[in-house]
């Protein structure tokens, strides 16, 4: 029984971390129509920033600042935001395909840096001993859920604001927005940077939850692909959909792990590939048969003359 509760807490905490990442992606893709396929990169920058800022002194990697958890989280968001400025600056005026190529490029380069710059990140051996803000697992779950609620409220507020309307207008018809005198590239950059900063925040939560990070965790598969499938399954542009999609895909992904873990040891790597294939097929099925996702975006009702 205790093991089951323990697993439940772990399961929900990871789902919460993914929810933060998915909400960040929803701001970029769901609202603004930006194709960030380097989520893993911003996720990793956040995780490593917070780890380096808060971890105790170690000869193996940069660190020894020993700063408290809130500062680590804030630094993570700022660093990921800065990385987004660097990527976004050159590509915001172009078709979103170019942003996709640029973001996958930056994510791969970040992964190479994490693996090779030992002085900074301890390379493939990773950073251990990242302090936890609270002692108990349940407390950590509380912290993560707190951040999910905070980010959700923030993005929901942004969605309803004039700023969010401009973003969705850019997604629907860029030229019309330009014609009404808005700086499209500027708004895009804002959305991209804020979304990436939220991903950095998710990275920080991940680092403090697992207490150990290594480049493995920021593979494009776990760091980018799952999050995209979560958002598309839930419903791009709908924050509740993003949360629901995260939960559903996380159940499928974890559930498939429970099933494949019963296979004999010699099939372990094969089983991993099978799970990825399953998620890949789910994505194609959703795109073909329910592209709007489980909870489609709520379209604003058009007012008729005479209404309010």
């Amino acid at each position: 029984m205790e093991g089951l509760i323990g697993y439940g807490v772990f399961f929900l905490t990871m789902a919460g971390i993914y929810a933060v990442l998915t909400l960040g992606l929803n701001l970029q893709w769901g609202f603004t129509g930006q194709f960030n396929i380097g989520v893993a990169g911003f996720f990793a920058v956040g995780a490593y920033t917070s780890a380096i800022v808060t971890a105790p002194d170690s000869a193996a990697h940069l660190g020894g600042f020993g700063l408290p958890f809130p500062i680590g989280v804030a630094a993570a968001a700022v660093m990921s935001g800065l990385a987004a400025v660097a990527v976004g600056w050159g590509t915001m005026r172009l078709r979103t395909d170019y942003l996709a190529i640029a973001t996958i490029g930056i994510a791969e380069i970040i992964r190479h840096v994490l693996k090779n710059e030992d002085w900074l990140t301890n390379g493939v051996r990773g950073i251990p001993g990242i302090p936890r803000p609270v002692e108990t697992e349940l407390g950590l779950l509380g912290v993560v859920i707190g951040f999910v609620i905070l980010v959700y409220l923030l993005i929901e507020r942004a969605r309803k604001s004039p700023w969010g309307r401009v973003l969705r207008a850019i997604r629907e018809n860029e030229n019309a927005v330009m014609a009404s005198g808005k700086d499209v590239a500027d708004f895009r950059l804002q959305a991209f940077v804020v979304g990436s900063a939220i991903m950095g925040l998710g990275g920080a939560l991940y680092a403090h939850f697992t207490a150990f990070i290594s480049p493995e965790a920021f593979d494009p598969l776990y760091g980018t692909f799952l999050i995209w499938v979560m958002l598309i399954a839930g419903g791009s542009g709908n924050n509740k959909g993003a949360l629901l999609g995260t939960l559903v895909i996380w159940i499928v992904w974890s559930g498939s792990e429970i099933l494949t873990s019963r296979l004999p040891v010699e099939y372990v790597t094969q089983a991993g590939a099978l799970r990825v294939l399953l998620i890949g097929v789910i994505l194609q099925v959703i795109l073909l048969y329910r592209p709007e996702g489980l909870l489609p975006e709520e379209r604003p009702r058009l007012g008729r003359p005479g209404d309010g």
Binding site: I37, W228, Q270, L287
Partner: peptide
């Protein structure tokens, strides 16, 4: 998917990329 926006094809191709790779791993290790 061609009837919709081209960018949907981009997402789909990303999924195909990972599906192809996992198939290759399944068949050839």
């Amino acid at each position: 998917l061609r009837r919709t926006q081209p960018v949907i094809l981009l997402i789909s191709s990303f999924g195909i990329a990972l599906a192809l790779r996992s198939l290759i791993q399944l068949v050839w290790g």
